[in-house]
Write a protein that binds this DNA or RNA. Structure first.
Length: 480
DNA sequence: ATGTAC
C-alpha cells in the first residue's frame, strides 16, 4: 500500500498521516489540502514529510501546505518545528534558496496610468534590473562589505542609498536577523555573492508591476492602505548564489557529523546536526547571514524598480507614493515560542516554501498592522494572480504560525518546455507582458506548469490560518 | 533555487 492510501481525510481541507505510519515517525503529518489539490499530491512528497517526522526533537506534528511538492529531503510547502534543546537543524528542510521570499510595495498610482505604457515600462525595467542565472548586478562588493550585508540585512541596503528608514519597519524581523555570524560563511560563498546583490535570479523569481484587482475584506484592505486599481510592485527573489553555497557547505558539514552525533535518518537529504552543537549553531549563524543577504537583495530590487517606474513617469517619490507593505521569507528557520499541551516551548520552526502568518496582536507584527495581522504575500506565476492575505489566529494552533507560499509546480521543467514549444510560446502567453533576457526560463515557467494559486489560498483562508484580503493582477512581469 | 552536473 502506498502512503497516499494511508492518508485519512479528517475534513474538507485536512488529511492526516498518522504517527508510526513509517518506521520511527514520532509525530503525525497533517496535509492542508483540498480534494482537487489532493489529486496532484505526490507519493514522494508524502514520504519526505513522513521522513521528517523521524528527526530528533521534532515536536507535535509536521504540517504540509496546499502548494506542496517534492523538494530536496523535505517537501516544499512543509513546516517542521524542532525543540531547540533536544532537536536538530536541517539545511535541506530550509532549502537551497535561503530566505527566498516576497516583497510588496504600494504606490499611489492607478492602473490606467500604467496600462498604455506597460510594454515600454517593462523594457526599461529589464534594462535597469539585472535578472537571470548568474546575472551580475551594478554592485561589486568586497568580502568585508558582504560581511556587513550579512550582519545588517535590509538596513545595509537602506544605508547604502537603496530605500528609506521607514521601509525597515515593514519587513519580517525588520529585515535584520540578529543571530548572524559572517565568519561562519565560506570564502566561496562570498565569491559567489560578490556581484549578485540586487539581482533577480531565475526560475520562478520575478519583479512584477501589478494592480489591485479584487478586494475580499474591505475593512482590512483599508487599514493596509489598499484599494481597487492601485498599482503595486512585487519582488520574488532570494539569496542567490550566496545562500545556495551556504546550504551546500552545511549539508556537507551535516553529513560528516551524522556519526559523531549518532543521528539516524531515513534519507541522506535530511542530513542534520543537533541545533545546540557547534556545527548546528554555525549553520544557523551562516543561514541567518544568507537570510540577511536576501532581505538586502529584495530591498535593492524593490527600490530600483520603484525608482525606474518613478523616473519613467517623471514624477517625485511623493507623487509615486512608494510604501513597503511587507517583505517576508518563505525558506527559513526561525526560533519561536509555542504552547504545546499547555507547556510553552522554544522551537526552531523550519519553513520551506511556507510563510509566517502571525495573527493580530502578535508582538512581531509591525505596529501599523497590529490589529489586522501580519501581511502574507503569495506570489502567482506568470500571468497568474498574486494574493495579499493577513495572518489569522488558527495559524498559532494548527501550523506553527505558518501559511502557504505560492502555487507549486505541476509540470516538470522539461515537460513545461515541451508544452510551450508544442503550443507556441506566443499563444501560451497571449495578452501578457513578460520581459526576459532569454526565452528559456519563460518556457519553464509558463502558467500551465503550475497549480492554481487561487485554489491554494482558498484552503488557508478556509482553515483560518490566513485571511484573504486582496487579489493582484499582473500588468507586466520581468523574469530571469 | 543554483556559475541549471562533483
Amino acid at each position: 500500500m502506498g502512503l497516499k492510501e494511508a492518508l485519512v481525510r479528517l475534513s474538507d481541507y485536512v488529511y492526516v498521516l498518522k504517527e508510526n505510519t513509517i518506521i520511527g515517525q514520532r509525530v503525525p503529518v497533517y496535509f492542508y489540502i483540498s480534494d482537487r489539490l489532493f489529486e496532484h499530491l505526490e507519493e514522494d512528497a508524502i514520504r519526505q514529510a513522513a521522513n521528517a517526522g523521524t528527526l530528533p526533537g521534532v515536536e507535535k506534528a509536521i504540517y504540509v501546505m496546499p502548494d506542496v511538492h517534492v523538494g530536496y529531503g523535505f517537501p516544499v510547502g512543509g513546516v517542521m518545528a524542532v525543540n531547540t534543546q533536544t532537536g536538530i537543524i536541517s539545511p535541506g528542510s530550509i532549502g537551497y534558496d535561503i530566505n527566498c521570499g516576497v516583497r510588496l510595495i504600494a504606490t499611489n498610482l492607478s492602473e490606467e496610468r500604467i496600462l498604455p505604457i506597460r510594454q515600454e515600462l517593462m523594457q526599461e525595467i529589464l534594462n535597469k534590473v539585472p535578472a537571470g542565472v548568474g546575472s551580475r548586478g551594478r554592485l561589486k562588493l568586497s568580502k568585508e562589505q558582504l560581511k556587513e550585508v550579512a550582519i545588517k540585512g535590509a538596513r545595509w541596503a537602506v544605508e547604502y542609498g537603496f530605500g528609506f528608514e521607514e521601509d525597515l519597519m515593514h519587513i519580517e524581523s525588520s529585515g535584520t536577523l540578529p543571530d548572524a555570524d559572517p565568519d561562519k560563511v565560506s570564502n566561496f560563498a562570498y565569491e559567489r555573492g560578490s556581484e549578485e546583490l540586487g539581482t533577480v535570479g531565475s526560475g520562478n523569481h520575478f519583479v512584477e508591476i501589478q494592480a489591485v484587482d479584487e478586494i475580499y475584506d474591505e475593512n482590512t484592505a483599508q487599514k493596509l492602505g489598499i484599494s481597487i486599481g492601485q498599482v503595486m510592485i512585487m519582488v520574488h527573489s532570494g539569496s542567490r548564489g550566496f545562500g545556495h553555497q551556504v546550504c551546500v557547505d552545511y549539508l556537507k558539514v551535516a553529513k560528516d557529523a551524522l556519526d559523531k552525533y549518532k543521528i539516524h535518518i531515513p534519507d541522506m537529504q535530511l542530513a542534520c546536526m543537533p541545533f545546540r552543537s557547534e556545527e548546528g549553531q554555525n549553520y544557523f549563524k551562516a543561514m541567518n547571514c544568507a537570510a540577511n543577504y536576501a532581505f538586502a537583495n529584495r530591498q535593492i530590487l524593490g527600490f530600483i524598480t520603484a525608482d525606474t517606474l518613478r523616473r519613467f513617469l517623471g514624477i517625485s517619490w511623493e507623487e509615486l507614493g512608494y510604501r513597503v507593505v511587507y517583505d517576508l521569507a518563505h525558506n527559513i528557520g526561525k526560533v519561536e515560542r509555542y504552547k504545546i499541551d499547555g507547556e510553552e516551548k522554544e522551537l526552531l520552526v523550519h519553513r520551506k516554501g511556507a510563510t509566517r502568518a502571525f495573527p493580530p496582536y502578535n508582538p512581531d507584527v509591525p505596529p501599523a498592522y497590529r490589529d489586522v495581522g501580519q501581511p502574507v504575500l503569495i506570489p502567482g506565476d506568470i500571468g497568474r494572480y498574486s494574493f495579499l492575505l493577513v495572518g489569522a489566529p488558527k495559524s498559532m494552533e494548527i501550523s506553527f504560525g505558518s501559511a502557504c507560499h505560492g502555487a507549486g509546480r505541476l509540470m516538470s521543467r522539461t515537460k513545461a518546455k515541451e508544452y510551450a514549444r508544442k503550443e507556441g510560446i506566443e499563444k501560451v502567453l497571449s495578452g501578457l507582458v513578460v520581459v526576459a533576457r532569454g526565452k528559456g526560463t519563460i518556457m519553464e515557467e509558463i502558467p500551465q506548469a503550475y497549480k492554481d494559486v487561487t485554489e491554494v489560498v482558498k484552503v488557508v483562508d478556509a482553515l483560518g490560518i490566513a485571511k484573504l484580503v486582496a487579489r493582484l493582477k499582473p500588468l507586466g512581469t520581468l523574469k530571469g
